[in-house]
Each structure stands twice: as structure tokens, then as C-alpha cells.
Computed example of a mutant assay.
Amino acid sequence: MNSKQVHRFVVSYLESKECHFIEKSPVGVTVKLSPDADRALSNRPYYWSFVDRTGSPPETMTYRWSFENPAMSDRMNASNVSYVLTESGRIIQEDVYFGSRRLHQLFGVVQQSGRCVTLFEEPPRGRLDPFASQPYTAWLGVNFKVGYECDMKREELYLWGVSLATGIIEERFMDKLKDRRLTPRLPANVHLLKNGLSLRKGMAQLEAALERRLRTADFSWAVEAEARRQDELERIRQYYDPMLEHMNHPDQMEQKEAVTARFKQREAEIDWQYKPRVSVSVLNCGIFHLPGLD
């Protein structure tokens, strides 16, 4: 990410959390965090537990974030955090760039808070009858990550959606969303149609469709990985079997048990490294209310 992309990402997050911008420029922002953003970013759990217990009005922190990318030598030789005292209080100054701890924290916060969202498409402005109500249908969108794993790894992403009204599955759901303006607030003059599917049934349909897709995939990589696994197992058997065969003396029983344990451990390590497997996980999901009846 370059500095402009970092700037756009950070400002977008702060706006979504309704933070108060004191100063904004192309190279940095000075912002007073909202309570939600302060809880997520300031690392003050004891302060917020005190606020929650006593009901005191919270005093959130103010940051001045610079998005200019410092030279590598500056990153190594100086702290990227400093403090400025003003009449309104203390301002914490930080450099926020790709690779910085603050940006890494923001990525984690956004990923955690955005794992499940509810969004509505904004209707075109000025084109709708103010006295009419437009029907919206709910879609369940799920971002699946499929991992093909052995001693090598390949990952694929599937962002699929299912209409909770009709059960239609859209495998190019991202294309359906990318040109739409989405908002977390229900727009005016919109009514939501009743769902024909529950979230559980919609998710089950997506999982079944993804499983059918994966069953038709090319698994030659798994055959090759299994062959490599057997080769590695045979190699360690040729090493350990003769050693164990010669440990028949009663005085060698303790040593034999130790060697057997190492042998089993090496087999387990080879299984973990080479055994082919397919893993499926959900990165994030959302309910998207879109105009129409499909």
C-alpha cells in the first residue's frame, strides 16, 4: 500500500466510526476518536471498565497521524510516537504507513468488526417517488477461503451469495455488489420483503453448492503429495527399523522406547507436512438488502 491508499483506508475507518476530525490534509489527520474507536484503538481497558462501572462521560484520545512514508533509517533510529501538549489536551503523534504497528492494529480491528455486516443499497437520489416504497430482498453473502494443503499450499477465495427470498445462488456475488452504493442505515421509502429462507438454511445451501464445486476440482496434486508422503515414510522406516531390530537386549529396553517415540514423532511430522487435505473457512459474511424481488 502506498501513502495515498493508507490515507484513504484510515480516513474511511475513522468516518465510519463517526470520529471528529480537527484537521485533515492529504498527508495527515488530527482526529478526536469516538468512544467506539477509542475502545478499539487506545488500549485502555481499565479506563473503559471504570467508565462502564461509574457511568462517567468518556474522555477520548486525540491523535495526529502522518501518512508520509518515512525512510527506512528513520524507522529504525527513532520512535514513530511523540506527544504534543495543547490547550485542549495531549495529542499523540504517530507515523502511519504500511508495515507500522498502528496500521497493523487498524487492519485487525477492521477485520474483526467487519466479519459480519448488514448493509443496504442506497436508492438513486431524486429518481424515486417520495410517496412510493421500494421492495428490497435480503441476500446472504459469504466469503469462503479454500486451502489446498500438503507440503505446499494454495488458497482460493469464493465470494458467493444466496437470495434469502428465492434460494438463487450467485457465484459472482462480488460483481453484483461492486458498483452499488451501500450503507449500514435503512434508506427512506424502502420496505424489506419477508425471507423465504432462514440464515441457517441459506448458509447450508451455500456450503452444499461449494462442496459440489470442490468435488469436481483437479486433485492430481493430492495424489502427488501422497506419493511424496509415502516416500518420506519409507525413508525413515529404512533408518529406524534396523536400529529397533537390534535393540533386543533387556538393558536396551529404555533406549528402544525412546527411539520408538522419536520414530512415531517423525511419522506424525511427515503426516502433518505431506498429507493432502482441503480446508474451508469463512473469512467474513454479510446480509445485503438489495432492490428487487429475486
Rank of each mutant, 00 (worst) to 15 (best):
F120Q: 07
N143W: 12
P45V: 00
D74M: 04
S88Q: 15
A37S: 10
K145V: 15
P26H: 01
T118I: 09
G28T: 06
C116M: 13
E121R: 08
T30H: 04
F67V: 08
G108A: 13
V84F: 05
C150V: 10
G28K: 04
S88K: 14
G89E: 07
N80P: 08
R101A: 14
L106Q: 08
V110H: 10
S34H: 02
V29H: 07
Y63F: 14
F67L: 06
R39Y: 10
G141K: 08
H7W: 13
R64V: 02
G114L: 03
R101S: 13
R102G: 02
T30W: 05
T118P: 03
D129E: 03
W48V: 02
S79V: 06
F21I: 06
G28R: 05
P57D: 13
S100A: 01
M76G: 09
R102M: 09
P70W: 06
R64Y: 11
V117E: 06
S56L: 11
S12N: 14
E15T: 12
E18A: 14
T86A: 01
E18P: 00
R39H: 01
Q5L: 13
Q134K: 09
E18H: 12
I22N: 10
S73Y: 13
T60V: 02
D129L: 01
V142L: 04
P130L: 00
S88G: 14
R127E: 13
G28V: 08
R75C: 08
R115G: 12
W139N: 03
D36T: 10
S25A: 11
R101W: 08
P70A: 00
V29M: 01
F67P: 03
S82M: 00
T54A: 07
K4A: 15
L103M: 02
L103Y: 02
P123C: 03
P130C: 05
F50L: 14
V146L: 01
A138L: 02
N43D: 15
V142P: 04
K17C: 13
T54K: 03
R53G: 11
S79R: 13
P26W: 07
Q105F: 00
Q105N: 02
S25W: 09
N77S: 14
G89I: 03
T30V: 14
Y148C: 05
S12L: 12
Y63W: 10
V117M: 03
Y63A: 06
F21Y: 12
P70F: 03
Q5K: 12
